[in-house]
Amino acid sequence: MLSVHVVRQLRDFVLDVALSARSGETLVLIGENGSGKSTVLNLISGILTPDRGEITLEDRTLFSSEKKVAIPPENRNIGHLFQSYALFPHMTVFENVAFGLRSRKVPKAEIADAVAEQLATMHLSDLADVNVGRLSGGQRQRVGLARALILDPALLLLDEPLAAVDMRAQAPMRSELHDQIRNAGIPCIVVTHNLRDALELGDRLCLIEEGKVVVDGAPEEVLGMRENGFIESFAGE
């Protein structure tokens, strides 16, 4: 169970968002560019600090302005997949996926086994020694996801997970991603501009406008609210 209430002054408006997601539930955030969706993910994973608010994940308080708690990002155990995947360009696929385990000082032999297994389940074994600069969009996405999932995160944050994947590969990658989220059995928040992502990945849909959650509900319900301009254009694609 994830429960979030974060407030932060952004350049043009105050972001004030309250969200929650149960284990195994996927929440999809939609909204205009610059409405604050990615900022919400950064606040949850700890890259940005809220001005005030509280973030709890399972029984752990990750941030609380009241209790003066601010767990640094490296100790939050959250998988955060960035929009461009942020694969480390000076490392191979193997080294990227091993990065988190190395940071946790896991013994070398264990890392080798765990990475090999993770790469195998994500059909990346052949690419282990390839430098990440030579991967396709779909391969990059899988490496980014493998790098996060190998750490057994307690929460998964996905920022436009399929945007850099080429069109033809999107549908199979989406259902693959859907399975991976289901298998992980943890709460998941997905930011997307894509209607298919919202429908196939989301258990719930949140519309964010200028840093506020204006609609929160089941996908069909939310997409039915055609009186809202953004939903009208989003659902009408």
């Binding site: 990002p73 960035f82 942020a86 940071s103 946790r104």
Partner: peptide, 15 residues
């Protein structure tokens, strides 16, 4: 150096 790489490394557990 793009900060994104540093941010990603932090979320992966690096101090």
């Amino acid at each position: 150096v793009d900060r994104l790489y540093e941010d990603a490394a932090r979320t992966l557990g690096a101090s």
